[in-house]
Amino acid sequence: MSPVEMALVLLAGVGAGVINTIVGSGTLITFPTLVAFGVPPVTATMSNAVGLVPGNISGSFGYRRELAGQGFLVKRLLPASLLGSLVGAYLLLHLPEDAFIAVVPVLLVLALILVVVQPPLQKWLNARREASGAAAVTLDTMSAPRSAALLATVFLCGIYGGYFAAAQGILLMGILGLLVPLALQRMNALKNVLVLGVNVVSATTYVVVATWGGGAHELDWTAVGLVAVGSLIGGAVGAGIGRRLPPLLLRACILVLGLIALYTILGMR
Rank of each mutant, 00 (worst) to 15 (best):
H217L: 12
N192T: 14
V198N: 15
V209T: 11
L219F: 03
L219S: 01
T211A: 13
L194D: 15
T205H: 06
V198P: 09
G230F: 05
L226M: 02
N192M: 14
Y206L: 05
D220N: 12
V195A: 13
H217K: 08
G214W: 06
G213C: 09
V224T: 04
N199K: 04
W221I: 03
V193T: 14
A216S: 12
E218A: 04
A203G: 03
A203P: 01
T222S: 12
V198A: 15
A223W: 02
V201C: 02
N192V: 13
V208W: 08
V195L: 06
V193W: 12
L219E: 01
V224L: 04
A228I: 09
G197Y: 08
V209Q: 13
H217M: 11
V198M: 15
V200R: 09
Y206K: 04
L226C: 01
V201N: 00
V200L: 15
V193S: 12
T222Y: 09
G230A: 06
D220L: 05
V227Y: 01
L219N: 02
V227D: 02
A210N: 00
S202Y: 08
V198W: 09
V208Y: 08
Y206A: 06
V198S: 15
G197L: 10
W212N: 11
A210T: 01
L196I: 10
A216T: 10
V207P: 02
V193Q: 11
L196V: 11
G197C: 12
T204S: 15
G197W: 09
V209R: 11
N192Q: 14
A228Q: 13
S202L: 12
L219W: 00
G215Q: 12
Y206Q: 05
W212C: 07
A203C: 01
V195I: 13
G230S: 07
Y206V: 03
V200T: 12
L226W: 01
L226Y: 01
L196D: 14
D220S: 09
N192A: 15
W212A: 14
T211F: 04
G214M: 09
V207F: 04
G197K: 10
G214P: 06
G230W: 05
V227S: 01
N199A: 05
W221M: 07
Y206H: 09
L219D: 00
A223F: 02
V193A: 14
V207G: 03
G214K: 07
W221S: 03
T204F: 11
A210D: 01
V200F: 11
H217G: 10
L226R: 01
A216F: 05
N192D: 14
L226H: 02
V198Q: 15
V227W: 00
V207S: 05
A228E: 14
D220P: 02
L194V: 13
D220E: 10
N199D: 07
A216Y: 07
V193K: 11
A210K: 00
V209D: 13
T204D: 15
E218H: 03
W221K: 03
V193C: 14
W221F: 07
